[in-house]
Computed example of a mutant assay.
Amino acid sequence: MRTERNLTRLDRVFARLDREPERPAHLDVPRMSRHRVVLCGSTLAFYLAIVVAVLTTSWLVRFDWQVMFFRPYQQWPEIHAFLDYWVVLGQRGPTAVMVAAWLGWRSWRQHTLRPLLMFGAALLLLNATVGAAKIGMGRLGPHYATAIGSNEMWLGGDIFPSGHTANAVVTWGILAYMASTPRTRRYLSALSAVVSLSVGLTTVYLGTHWLSDVFLGWAAGLLILLALPWFEPLISRIEAAVLGLRDSWRARRAGTAALPGPVTAPVGVPAMVPQRPAAEESAPARETVGAARAGRPPAYLAPGPHTARSERTPVTPAGSRRPPHPDRVSRGTTSARPVAGG
């Protein structure tokens, strides 16, 4: 008796992937709706508020110092080893490789470059905005602070805003942004929020960032994710241009392959000449030979006017075998003398 194997959850996942269309016709692409514009404006206001609070050495700076003197890594040393590895989820290099591998597979599966292009645009915006803010404000971290209670601004540092936090928001948030259904986007948004919050708090635990650095990093990463729909038209044009170049290159390769050069037979092997039908060869072949005869005399004929054999006098090395005779006429002509009878 034959029994069928029960499908595991992994088998069902792969079966679902196999049934997925190669290029979905209707993707739920995020748009710059009014709700998103309001969120973007609120996040920008929060970003500016954090910057102003730090520049004016407000209560936020004092709270930064209180957290630093609390030294969380000394209060809970048992989780220090785990959080040393967990903070890697905010480092740009390893996370970019992992997310790019997943989005690259999605691009290959769906025959579209949009996932990779959107991820590249998000990383470019992240490096430009966060890097410029870090260099421009130059804040020192807790381990390098010079004066208790100061905001440590414009002293050559590069920690404000937190790069680990902003990178975690953008890198893991782009997975939610690229989700194909609203339900999947909600789940991935919640997951990326948890990861980015935990990575930001981990940097505070390790003493590498002020708490205000983490707040500004969250705002900086969220601003990039909220602004991505504005770049969708540009990404579509770039994708169309790249795919057009690919199609033209394939067309050139196909045209070159369709016109092969002359085939030469190997040495010692007679070349196989394809036979044409007799109806094809008859008329053109005779015309070609006739044209060749009219244009150039055959090689075996002597140059000059060609005469019949009966009109030519046999020639020997010693001269003609017939002596000249005035009454001799050529063969084929009628004699002028009367024929005697009798």
Score class of each variant (00 low, 15 high):
V195N: 00
V263L: 08
R312T: 09
S282D: 14
A283P: 03
P262Y: 02
S310D: 01
R12M: 15
V263F: 12
A283R: 11
R139Q: 03
T333E: 13
G244P: 01
P21N: 10
V38I: 08
Y85R: 10
L188N: 01
E287P: 06
R185F: 07
F82N: 06
R139A: 08
A96H: 06
L211W: 14
S58I: 02
T334N: 09
A308D: 01
R293P: 10
A336P: 11
R16V: 14
V51E: 05
R71M: 05
F119D: 14
Q91H: 01
D327N: 00
M68V: 11
W218K: 08
E287V: 04
G131D: 05
S192C: 02
S198E: 03
G217W: 05
A257I: 07
T8Y: 02
P303S: 12
M118H: 11
E239L: 11
R185T: 01
T202Q: 02
R331P: 07
L259W: 07
P277G: 13
M98H: 03
G104K: 12
A318K: 03
D158H: 01
V13L: 15
P284E: 04
E152H: 12
R62A: 14
H306T: 09
D18H: 15
G217F: 07
R34D: 09
S192L: 07
R246Q: 15
G217A: 08
A271Y: 13
L259I: 04
G290I: 05
D28P: 04
D64R: 13
I224C: 05
M137C: 10
P314D: 01
T334M: 09
T129W: 07
R185G: 09
V263E: 08
T57S: 14
V61N: 14
L140R: 03
P297L: 06
T171P: 06
A271N: 10
T264R: 03
G138M: 02
Y300N: 06
A227P: 02
N6S: 09
G319S: 04
S180L: 11
R296D: 11
R109C: 04
E20I: 12
L83P: 02
S189I: 04
G221M: 02
F119P: 13
P270D: 05
A133I: 10
R12F: 15
H209F: 04
Q91S: 00
L126H: 03
W59L: 15
W230K: 01
T146L: 05
P233N: 07
Q110T: 14
R12N: 15
G255I: 08
H80L: 05
L17S: 12
V61H: 13
V242L: 14
P284M: 02
W108R: 15
M137S: 11
R12V: 15
F14T: 12
H35I: 07
R114P: 05
L228A: 00
D84H: 12
T334E: 02
N6W: 00
L116A: 04
V29E: 03
V99Y: 05
H35R: 02
G217M: 08
A101W: 10
V52N: 06
P297E: 09
R109S: 00
S189L: 01
P326H: 06
F119Q: 15
L48T: 06
S162G: 08
I174C: 04
R309F: 00
R183M: 08
P323L: 06
R286I: 00
V199Q: 11
